[in-house]
């Protein structure tokens, strides 16, 4: 019994702490990039930030600073892309949210998300305010509590009558959080993309000669539904659908 509990704790500890951490060289690179930004050499700063990301480090801080550098060099599409990536990794960071909103106020397209009532709105709030890992962590803790509860239920016959209530509670909670984890992963797996060109036509189908459904401008965020060769089917704010050339977009 004891060794298996030990291993369990070790595994949990590994999940919480055992993340890949950057080496000193990457920190030096970040320091250099920040110095270039402070010296208003935004283009050079962008290169250094991108070098860190190229090493496989996905960190909200790097994306945030990169977004700032893009904003300062007036590349609004790239700025929004970087802020969006930062937001995915740290969805409640106020600086990221403020700068993203600020940059989105400067682009051509105004996209208003429809108000769908309290329940749907708070569901969207939950979906967008937490990362997949955070949701999984909460779900895991509840799952562990359920397992512990079940173990107690098995071992201590005297308490079984009272243990039924937390057992049912944790069981329902586990189902709910598990379901939410599933939905959250589904939600985050739908790729979104940012328009990178000044203006592009969204066609009614995958072809140059078809009708133009609407036009989008740099910095607008689209959800990708399907990819077919050169073309991707996109949806704007859950309402407008159309096909757009792949090269005009970059996935978040």
């Amino acid at each position: 019994m004891t060794p298996s509990l030990f291993r369990l704790i070790w595994v949990v500890f590994f999940i919480m702490v055992g993340r890949a951490t950057a080496t000193e060289a990457l920190l030096a690179e970040l320091e250099k990039a920040n110095q270039l930004y402070e010296a208003e050499q935004y283009e050079a700063a962008i290169e250094h930030y991108q070098a860190i990301i190229a090493q496989g480090i996905e960190n909200p801080l790097v994306y945030y600073n990169l977004g700032n550098a893009f904003f300062k060099s007036n590349q609004l599409g790239n700025a929004i892309l970087s802020y969006e990536r930062a937001r995915r990794l740290a969805p409640r960071d106020e600086d990221i949210l403020v700068n993203l909103e600020f940059t989105r106020a400067q682009i051509v397209d105004r996209v208003e998300l429809p108000d769908e009532g309290f329940l749907i709105n708070s569901y969207h709030f939950l979906l967008t305010r937490f990362t997949v890992n955070e949701v999984l962590r909460v779900g895991y803790v509840i799952y562990l509590l359920l397992i512990l509860n079940m173990a107690l239920w098995i071992l201590v016959r005297r308490f079984r009558r009272w243990l039924v209530y937390p057992l049912v509670l944790f069981f329902v909670l586990t189902l709910m959080v598990g379901g939410f984890c599933y939905l959250k992963i589904q939600h985050d797996q739908v790729p979104t993309a940012v328009v990178m060109v000044t203006q592009t036509n969204v066609m009614t189908g995958p072809g140059e000669n078809l009708q133009v459904a609407f036009k989008v401008h740099e910095g607008t965020i689209l959800s990708i539904l399907e990819t077919r060769g050169e073309w991707v089917e996109v949806v704007l704010a859950g309402k407008l659908r159309g096909w757009v050339k792949k090269e005009t977009l970059v996935e978040v």
């Binding site: 951490t21 970040l30 480090i57 801080l61």
Partner: peptide, 12 residues
């Protein structure tokens, strides 16, 4: 921009 942190975690 934000300053350089003590550790740079990969959260992706």
């Amino acid at each position: 921009i934000k300053p350089v942190p003590a550790v740079l975690q990969n959260r992706g």
